[in-house]
Amino acid sequence: MSATLEDLKKTFAFAVPADVLAKLDPAKPLTAQGVDSLAMTAMAVAVQNAFGVKISVAEGLKLKTLNDVLAFVNKAR
């Protein structure tokens, strides 16, 4: 079964304040929406653990938006 944006947002709940998470535009860069580098790190760890995928440096360079992360997770699983 494919992961959804809601699945991702649940995974990120510990790393991103609820008000920021609720307003995230999946097509816009996360860092332009109040997600800082510490939160980006935590989100990446959570993605690896929750979805059983490994984010390489090359892949990580492409993950700018929630849509990017979702596409990566569903391709890599």
Partner: peptide, 17 residues
Amino acid sequence: MVHPEYRGSLILFHLTN
């Protein structure tokens, strides 16, 4: 730590990994 120009990246995550 991450250089200020790269704070929006996953560098810290990859360093930790």
